[in-house]
Nucleic acid binder design. Sequence first.
DNA 1: ACTATATTTCCACAAATATGGAAATATATC
DNA 2: GATATATTTCCATATTTGTGGAAATATAGT
Lengths: 109, 109
Amino acid sequence: MNNQQAVTLLSAIAQEARLDIFRCLVQAGPAGLSAGAISQTLQIPNSTLSFHLKALSHAGMISAQQESRFIYYSANYQSMNSLLAYLTENCCAGQQACCPDVICASSKE
Amino acid sequence: MNNQQAVTLLSAIAQEARLDIFRCLVQAGPAGLSAGAISQTLQIPNSTLSFHLKALSHAGMISAQQESRFIYYSANYQSMNSLLAYLTENCCAGQQACCPDVICASSKE
DNA sequence: ACTATATTTCCACAAATATGGAAATATATC
DNA sequence: GATATATTTCCATATTTGTGGAAATATAGT
Protein backbone atom coordinates (compact mmCIF):
# COMPACT_ATOMS: atom_id res chain seq x y z
CA MET A 1 0.00 0.00 0.00
CA ASN A 2 1.27 3.46 -0.88
CA ASN A 3 -0.12 6.97 -0.67
CA GLN A 4 -1.84 6.95 -4.05
CA GLN A 5 -3.41 3.55 -3.64
CA ALA A 6 -4.72 4.58 -0.24
CA VAL A 7 -6.12 7.83 -1.61
CA THR A 8 -7.86 5.87 -4.35
CA LEU A 9 -9.50 3.60 -1.78
CA LEU A 10 -10.35 6.42 0.60
CA SER A 11 -11.82 8.59 -2.16
CA ALA A 12 -13.98 5.70 -3.15
CA ILE A 13 -15.69 5.60 0.24
CA ALA A 14 -15.46 9.30 1.07
CA GLN A 15 -18.91 9.95 -0.30
CA GLU A 16 -22.26 9.42 1.41
CA ALA A 17 -23.82 7.11 -1.11
CA ARG A 18 -20.68 5.05 -1.63
CA LEU A 19 -19.98 4.72 2.07
CA ASP A 20 -23.50 3.41 2.57
CA ILE A 21 -23.03 0.98 -0.28
CA PHE A 22 -19.69 -0.20 1.00
CA ARG A 23 -20.84 -0.75 4.58
CA CYS A 24 -23.90 -2.52 3.29
CA LEU A 25 -21.60 -4.91 1.45
CA VAL A 26 -19.20 -5.28 4.38
CA GLN A 27 -22.12 -6.38 6.48
CA ALA A 28 -23.56 -8.60 3.78
CA GLY A 29 -20.45 -10.75 3.80
CA PRO A 30 -18.53 -12.47 1.00
CA ALA A 31 -21.69 -13.55 -0.86
CA GLY A 32 -22.49 -9.93 -1.61
CA LEU A 33 -25.64 -8.29 -2.95
CA SER A 34 -27.01 -7.67 -6.44
CA ALA A 35 -27.16 -4.14 -7.79
CA GLY A 36 -30.94 -4.30 -7.63
CA ALA A 37 -30.91 -5.34 -3.98
CA ILE A 38 -28.62 -2.45 -3.13
CA SER A 39 -30.73 -0.01 -5.12
CA GLN A 40 -33.83 -1.15 -3.29
CA THR A 41 -32.24 -1.17 0.16
CA LEU A 42 -30.63 2.23 -0.14
CA GLN A 43 -33.15 3.90 -2.44
CA ILE A 44 -30.62 5.04 -5.01
CA PRO A 45 -31.64 5.59 -8.67
CA ASN A 46 -30.16 3.03 -11.06
CA SER A 47 -27.91 5.34 -13.00
CA THR A 48 -26.54 6.90 -9.85
CA LEU A 49 -25.97 3.53 -8.24
CA SER A 50 -24.25 2.21 -11.33
CA PHE A 51 -21.95 5.22 -11.30
CA HIS A 52 -21.00 4.63 -7.68
CA LEU A 53 -20.61 0.87 -8.01
CA LYS A 54 -18.26 1.47 -10.88
CA ALA A 55 -16.27 3.93 -8.81
CA LEU A 56 -16.00 1.52 -5.88
CA SER A 57 -15.17 -1.34 -8.16
CA HIS A 58 -12.59 0.57 -10.15
CA ALA A 59 -10.91 1.66 -6.94
CA GLY A 60 -10.74 -1.94 -5.78
CA MET A 61 -12.94 -1.48 -2.73
CA ILE A 62 -15.52 -3.96 -4.01
CA SER A 63 -15.65 -6.82 -6.51
CA ALA A 64 -18.29 -7.75 -9.04
CA GLN A 65 -19.38 -11.23 -9.98
CA GLN A 66 -21.93 -11.99 -12.67
CA GLU A 67 -24.50 -14.67 -11.97
CA SER A 68 -27.13 -15.05 -14.67
CA ARG A 69 -28.89 -11.72 -15.09
CA PHE A 70 -27.65 -10.43 -11.75
CA ILE A 71 -24.35 -8.93 -10.84
CA TYR A 72 -23.33 -9.54 -7.26
CA TYR A 73 -21.12 -7.01 -5.61
CA SER A 74 -19.11 -7.80 -2.52
CA ALA A 75 -16.71 -5.90 -0.29
CA ASN A 76 -13.04 -6.42 -0.94
CA TYR A 77 -11.96 -7.21 2.62
CA GLN A 78 -8.33 -7.45 1.70
CA SER A 79 -8.29 -3.89 0.38
CA MET A 80 -10.10 -2.68 3.44
CA ASN A 81 -7.66 -4.25 5.82
CA SER A 82 -4.61 -3.11 3.88
CA LEU A 83 -5.98 0.38 3.99
CA LEU A 84 -6.61 0.31 7.74
CA ALA A 85 -3.14 -1.06 8.29
CA TYR A 86 -1.63 1.71 6.18
CA LEU A 87 -3.43 4.40 8.14
CA THR A 88 -2.20 3.14 11.47
CA GLU A 89 1.26 2.04 10.35
CA ASN A 90 3.97 2.80 12.84
CA CYS A 91 1.41 4.59 14.97
CA CYS A 92 2.95 6.85 17.63
CA ALA A 93 6.40 5.76 16.55
CA GLY A 94 6.13 2.63 18.63
CA GLN A 95 4.80 4.07 21.87
CA GLN A 96 1.74 2.13 22.90
CA ALA A 97 -1.63 3.18 24.18
CA CYS A 98 -2.70 5.63 21.57
CA CYS A 99 -5.01 3.41 19.60
CA PRO A 100 -7.04 0.51 20.99
CA ASP A 101 -7.84 -2.62 18.98
CA VAL A 102 -11.09 -1.95 17.26
CA ILE A 103 -10.98 -3.89 14.05
CA CYS A 104 -13.84 -6.02 12.90
CA ALA A 105 -15.87 -6.70 16.01
CA SER A 106 -17.31 -9.80 14.39
CA SER A 107 -13.93 -11.47 14.23
CA LYS A 108 -13.52 -11.14 17.98
CA GLU A 109 -16.49 -13.02 19.43
CA MET B 1 -20.33 7.84 14.34
CA ASN B 2 -22.77 8.18 11.46
CA ASN B 3 -22.50 8.27 7.69
CA GLN B 4 -21.94 12.00 7.39
CA GLN B 5 -19.37 12.20 10.15
CA ALA B 6 -17.48 9.32 8.58
CA VAL B 7 -17.58 10.93 5.14
CA THR B 8 -16.23 14.13 6.66
CA LEU B 9 -13.31 12.25 8.19
CA LEU B 10 -12.68 10.14 5.11
CA SER B 11 -12.81 13.14 2.76
CA ALA B 12 -10.25 14.83 4.95
CA ILE B 13 -7.68 12.12 4.33
CA ALA B 14 -8.76 11.13 0.81
CA GLN B 15 -6.22 13.45 -0.75
CA GLU B 16 -2.53 12.84 -1.33
CA ALA B 17 -1.16 15.80 0.57
CA ARG B 18 -3.55 15.43 3.48
CA LEU B 19 -3.00 11.69 3.79
CA ASP B 20 0.73 12.32 3.96
CA ILE B 21 0.20 14.98 6.58
CA PHE B 22 -2.11 12.80 8.61
CA ARG B 23 0.16 9.76 8.59
CA CYS B 24 3.08 11.96 9.46
CA LEU B 25 1.18 13.10 12.53
CA VAL B 26 -0.02 9.61 13.41
CA GLN B 27 3.59 8.52 13.46
CA ALA B 28 4.74 11.60 15.32
CA GLY B 29 2.58 10.72 18.29
CA PRO B 30 0.52 12.87 20.66
CA ALA B 31 3.15 15.62 20.87
CA GLY B 32 2.57 16.44 17.23
CA LEU B 33 4.55 18.62 14.84
CA SER B 34 4.57 22.32 14.05
CA ALA B 35 3.24 23.55 10.72
CA GLY B 36 6.75 24.52 9.74
CA ALA B 37 8.13 21.08 10.52
CA ILE B 38 5.44 19.50 8.38
CA SER B 39 6.03 21.96 5.56
CA GLN B 40 9.72 21.18 5.62
CA THR B 41 9.32 17.42 5.89
CA LEU B 42 6.74 17.11 3.14
CA GLN B 43 7.85 20.01 0.96
CA ILE B 44 4.47 21.68 0.77
CA PRO B 45 4.13 25.45 0.18
CA ASN B 46 2.85 27.33 3.20
CA SER B 47 -0.47 28.44 1.79
CA THR B 48 -1.24 24.98 0.50
CA LEU B 49 -0.27 23.36 3.78
CA SER B 50 -2.34 25.82 5.73
CA PHE B 51 -5.32 25.02 3.53
CA HIS B 52 -4.93 21.31 4.16
CA LEU B 53 -4.26 21.62 7.87
CA LYS B 54 -7.42 23.63 8.15
CA ALA B 55 -9.36 20.97 6.27
CA LEU B 56 -8.01 18.19 8.48
CA SER B 57 -8.59 20.21 11.58
CA HIS B 58 -12.10 21.27 10.63
CA ALA B 59 -12.99 17.66 9.90
CA GLY B 60 -11.73 16.64 13.32
CA MET B 61 -8.96 14.39 12.06
CA ILE B 62 -6.26 16.46 13.74
CA SER B 63 -6.02 18.96 16.56
CA ALA B 64 -4.09 22.20 16.84
CA GLN B 65 -2.34 23.54 19.89
CA GLN B 66 -0.57 26.85 20.04
CA GLU B 67 2.75 27.07 21.82
CA SER B 68 4.49 30.43 21.59
CA ARG B 69 4.96 31.24 17.92
CA PHE B 70 4.42 27.67 16.84
CA ILE B 71 1.24 25.76 16.29
CA TYR B 72 1.56 22.07 16.96
CA TYR B 73 -0.72 19.76 15.10
CA SER B 74 -1.40 16.23 16.26
CA ALA B 75 -3.48 13.33 15.02
CA ASN B 76 -6.85 12.86 16.64
CA TYR B 77 -6.53 9.18 17.50
CA GLN B 78 -10.03 8.97 18.86
CA SER B 79 -11.52 10.09 15.55
CA MET B 80 -9.33 7.67 13.68
CA ASN B 81 -10.37 4.73 15.79
CA SER B 82 -14.06 5.62 15.70
CA LEU B 83 -13.82 5.81 11.95
CA LEU B 84 -12.12 2.44 11.63
CA ALA B 85 -14.70 0.91 13.93
CA TYR B 86 -17.51 2.37 11.85
CA LEU B 87 -16.11 0.96 8.63
CA THR B 88 -15.87 -2.54 10.01
CA GLU B 89 -19.00 -2.48 12.14
CA ASN B 90 -20.95 -5.70 12.09
CA CYS B 91 -18.54 -7.03 9.50
CA CYS B 92 -19.81 -10.10 7.66
CA ALA B 93 -22.94 -10.06 9.76
CA GLY B 94 -21.12 -11.85 12.55
CA GLN B 95 -19.35 -14.58 10.62
CA GLN B 96 -15.69 -14.53 11.55
CA ALA B 97 -12.59 -14.80 9.48
CA CYS B 98 -13.12 -12.05 6.97
CA CYS B 99 -10.98 -9.40 8.55
CA PRO B 100 -7.86 -9.98 10.64
CA ASP B 101 -6.82 -7.71 13.49
CA VAL B 102 -4.62 -5.09 11.99
CA ILE B 103 -5.04 -2.04 14.12
CA CYS B 104 -2.10 -0.07 15.33
CA ALA B 105 0.81 -2.45 15.26
CA SER B 106 2.59 -0.36 17.85
CA SER B 107 -0.04 -1.09 20.44
CA LYS B 108 0.52 -4.82 20.08
CA GLU B 109 4.18 -5.26 20.91
C1' DA C 1 8.90 50.44 17.84
C1' DC C 2 11.79 47.27 14.66
C1' DT C 3 13.00 42.96 12.86
C1' DA C 4 12.65 38.18 12.10
C1' DT C 5 10.05 34.10 11.89
C1' DA C 6 5.53 31.37 11.76
C1' DT C 7 1.23 30.86 9.97
C1' DT C 8 -2.98 32.21 7.71
C1' DT C 9 -6.07 34.71 4.46
C1' DC C 10 -7.20 36.34 -0.13
C1' DC C 11 -7.81 35.46 -4.80
C1' DA C 12 -8.48 33.56 -9.35
C1' DC C 13 -8.18 29.74 -11.92
C1' DA C 14 -8.16 24.68 -13.25
C1' DA C 15 -9.82 20.25 -12.54
C1' DA C 16 -12.60 16.61 -10.64
C1' DT C 17 -17.02 14.91 -8.86
C1' DA C 18 -22.11 14.04 -8.21
C1' DT C 19 -26.74 13.82 -10.09
C1' DG C 20 -30.63 11.45 -12.50
C1' DG C 21 -33.61 10.98 -16.76
C1' DA C 22 -33.67 8.71 -21.12
C1' DA C 23 -31.90 5.48 -24.11
C1' DA C 24 -29.04 1.43 -24.87
C1' DT C 25 -27.35 -3.09 -23.78
C1' DA C 26 -27.30 -7.54 -21.62
C1' DT C 27 -29.54 -11.91 -20.07
C1' DA C 28 -33.33 -15.01 -19.25
C1' DT C 29 -38.02 -16.98 -20.16
C1' DC C 30 -41.97 -18.11 -23.00
C1' DG D 1 -38.13 -13.53 -31.83
C1' DA D 2 -40.94 -11.26 -28.47
C1' DT D 3 -41.18 -9.81 -23.84
C1' DA D 4 -39.67 -8.77 -19.20
C1' DT D 5 -36.15 -7.67 -16.01
C1' DA D 6 -31.29 -6.09 -14.67
C1' DT D 7 -27.78 -3.09 -15.34
C1' DT D 8 -25.05 0.29 -17.74
C1' DT D 9 -23.95 4.26 -20.82
C1' DC D 10 -24.79 8.91 -22.39
C1' DC D 11 -25.40 13.57 -21.43
C1' DA D 12 -25.77 18.24 -19.57
C1' DT D 13 -25.45 20.62 -15.56
C1' DA D 14 -24.28 22.08 -10.77
C1' DT D 15 -21.04 21.86 -7.17
C1' DT D 16 -16.88 21.06 -4.82
C1' DT D 17 -11.95 20.79 -4.50
C1' DG D 18 -6.96 21.78 -5.08
C1' DT D 19 -3.26 25.10 -6.13
C1' DG D 20 0.26 28.58 -4.82
C1' DG D 21 1.85 33.58 -5.06
C1' DA D 22 1.29 37.81 -2.64
C1' DA D 23 -0.23 40.19 1.16
C1' DA D 24 -1.85 40.18 5.90
C1' DT D 25 -1.64 38.76 10.63
C1' DA D 26 0.38 36.82 14.72
C1' DT D 27 4.17 36.15 18.18
C1' DA D 28 8.76 36.67 20.06
C1' DG D 29 13.29 38.86 20.74
C1' DT D 30 16.18 43.11 20.66
